[in-house]
């Protein structure tokens, strides 16, 4: 559980690190749209170049980025297999009784798997190079206009901050409770998936009880430090767009043009 790579942040001073978090979020948004727009391997080529460039300039090892796929490898595999068997085309490549595999199926399955992998690698690169605090901050500021529609923007970003803050604490606690229960004979490691899920159930009660206690404590602590919502609140770190944000936006635009061109002309 400790080896989670998703959501980890490596501080740095690279080009990617120095970008305004709002820029990075917007680029991420564009990237996600692009991943879904891509139609063929040319498009993936463009995306790969884009991702690789970002990765190199952020000084994140490519191997490390690939490792972030590990937790979803099963999902990628299932997606691949399902699409492989259930996409119909004209002439099958292979038929084993009722199971037919079409060239269209192979192509589609590969595309879908690639889509997932690209999505995860992109978001991982974002969280590896941007502190969670900066991300929630950027989100709060980008969504600010929604305040006029009475959407609780500040509350949402505060909730995200607190969630991020308590993930390690609660993981540590889960670990502790698991060890305590294992010491009393609970078995978390053998049996099938359902057995394992059942063994986890007794963990949830103490975990929830403690989470609610923590929530109570935290609410008091926040009140004691003058927290009273987002009105008239200032921030220590203000965000400013700089020249590098323009450069990054231009590069993203270039990649977008490439992929749009692929969609139209190929």
């Amino acid at each position: 559980m400790r080896e989670m790579t998703i959501g980890q942040f490596f501080p740095g001073t690279s080009f990617v690190h120095r970008l305004d978090p709002r820029t990075k979020l917007l680029i991420m948004l564009a990237y996600i749209v692009l991943v879904f727009l891509v139609k063929g391997f040319v498009g993936y080529g463009v995306l790969a170049v884009f991702l690789l460039a970002a990765c190199l300039s952020a000084k994140v090892k490519i191997g490390y980025l690939l490792k972030t796929i590990k937790p979803i490898i099963v999902i990628v595999f299932i997606t691949f297999v399902l699409n492989l068997f259930f996409t119909e085309g004209e002439t099958p490549w292979l038929s084993l009784g009722p199971v037919k595999i079409y060239p269209e199926g192979v192509r589609f399955a590969v595309m879908m798997a690639l889509r997932l992998i690209f999505l995860l690698m992109g978001t991982s690169l974002l969280t590896l190079t941007t502190s969670p605090m900066a991300l929630t901050d950027a989100l709060e500021r980008l969504l600010k206009p929604l305040n006029k529609l009475h959407f609780p923007v500040h509350e949402l970003s505060m909730m995200m901050t607190i969630a991020l803050r308590f993930i390690p604490t609660l993981m540590e606690e889960t670990d502790k409770i698991m060890k305590a229960q294992a010491a009393r004979g609970a078995d978390f490691d053998t049996g099938n998936l359902i057995d394992k899920a059942k063994a986890m159930l007794p963990l949830l009660v103490p975990l929830f009880v403690s989470a609610f206690r923590r929530a109570d404590d935290l609410a008091l602590a926040m009140e004691a430090r003058c927290y009273h919502g987002g009105d008239r609140r200032t921030r220590m770190k203000e965000l400013h767009y700089a020249k590098i944000d323009g450069i990054a936006a231009a590069l993203t635009l270039l990649a977008t043009l490439g992929i749009v061109a692929e969609r139209i002309f190929l």
Binding site: R213, R214, L218, R225, Y227, T234, R235, M236
Partner: peptide
């Protein structure tokens, strides 16, 4: 200051947490 050190730290970065009260008070950056 409360008993449980974990349950009174709000932010994910030390200095941001120290700034929390001042931000609530509306102090200049």
């Amino acid at each position: 200051i409360f008993q449980n050190p974990d349950n009174q730290i709000v932010a994910t970065v030390v200095e941001e947490d120290v700034a929390f009260g001042l931000e609530n008070m509306g102090v200049e950056p």
